[in-house]
C-alpha cells in the first residue's frame, strides 16, 4: 500500500522539480540544472517525454514475457496480462510520439521530419497497431491468445533495434543521434548530478505508475472474461 503514497510523493516532486528548477549556465546550487546548448529550457522535456518512451519498452517487454508464459502454461489470464500490457504500450508509444513532435515543432521547426527516431517509432506503431487488428479479427480465444503471444514475441525482437540502436547509429536531429555534438548523449555527459537525480526519479515514478495502471487494467480484462463465461 505504501508504494502508492511513495508514487504520489515521487511524481509530485518530479513535476515540481522538472518544471520549476532553474537552468543556468554554470550551476552552483544543488537544485540548478546545467544549460545544454541547443536545448535550453526545452531540455526539461527529458523528465516527461523519455519516461513515456521507456514505459512503451517496458510494456512491450511485459507483453512478450506474458505471451511466453501463456504459450507454456496455456492460462488465459496470462493472455489478459499480455493484452493489458499491449494496450498500455500503445498508449505510451503514441504519447512519446505526440510529446516528441510538439517539442520538435519548437526545436526543429515542424511537427514531423522523418528523423531516424521518428521513423523508427512510426514503424513500431505500425507493428503493434497491426497486432490489435489481428486480435480483433479472431473469434476463438485460444487461437487469438496463441497468435497474439507469438506475434508479441517476434514484435519485441524489433524493439531494442528501433528504440536503442537504429536512432543512435544514424545521423539525425534527435539528441543522441550519431552526429550530435551539442547535447548527446544527453544522459551521459551533459546532465549534472541534480538533473540526473530528477531524471532517474522520474523514470522510477513512471515505472511504478505503469505497474499500477497495468495491474488495474489486466484485472478488469480477467474479470470481464470470467463474467462473460459466467464463472463468477
Amino acid at each position: 500500500m505504501y508504494w502508492k503514497y511513495t508514487l504520489f510523493v515521487l511524481m509530485s516532486f518530479v513535476i515540481v522539480a522538472g518544471l520549476s528548477f532553474p537552468i543556468v549556465s554554470s550551476p552552483s546550487v544543488w537544485y540548478e540544472f546545467p544549460l545544454i546548448p541547443g536545448l535550453e529550457e526545452k531540455a526539461k522535456i527529458i523528465f516527461f517525454h523519455v519516461p513515456t518512451a521507456w514505459l512503451s519498452v517496458i510494456s512491450f517487454l511485459m507483453a512478450m514475457v506474458y505471451g511466453i508464459k501463456y504459450l507454456s502454461k496455456k492460462n488465459l489470464d496470462d493472455d489478459a496480462k499480455s493484452n493489458a500490457a499491449l494496450q498500455l504500450g500503445m498508449i505510451f508509444t503514441i504519447l512519446a510520439t505526440v510529446t516528441g513532435s510538439i517539442w520538435a515543432k519548437f526545436t526543429w521547426g515542424a511537427f514531423w521530419h522523418w528523423d531516424p527516431r521518428e521513423t523508427s517509432i512510426f514503424i513500431l506503431l505500425l507493428i503493434y497497431g497491426s497486432l490489435f487488428a489481428l486480435r480483433s479479427a479472431i473469434e476463438n480465444e485460444d487461437k487469438r491468445a496463441r497468435l497474439s503471444a507469438v506475434y508479441s514475441i517476434f514484435a519485441f525482437l524489433t524493439v531494442p533495434f528501433f528504440i536503442f540502436i537504429m536512432p543512435r547509429i544514424m545521423p539525425g536531429l534527435h539528441p543522441g543521434s550519431a552526429n550530435d555534438t551539442n547535447s548527446g548523449p544527453v544522459v551521459d555527459f551533459q546532465m549534472n548530478a541534480n538533473m540526473m537525480l530528477v531524471f532517474y526519479l522520474s523514470l522510477t515514478a513512471f515505472t511504478i505508475l505503469y505497474f499500477w495502471m497495468w495491474n488495474i487494467g489486466y484485472k478488469t480484462i480477467i474479470i470481464k472474461d470470467k463474467l462473460s463465461k459466467k464463472l463468477i
Binding site: I15, G18, L19, E41, K42, K44, I45, F48, H49, L95, V98, T99, I102, W103, F106
Partner: peptide, 8 residues
C-alpha cells in the same frame, strides 16, 4: 512547451 508536454 514543457507544460504542454506534461498536459499531453
Amino acid at each position: 512547451i514543457v507544460l504542454f508536454i506534461v498536459l499531453t
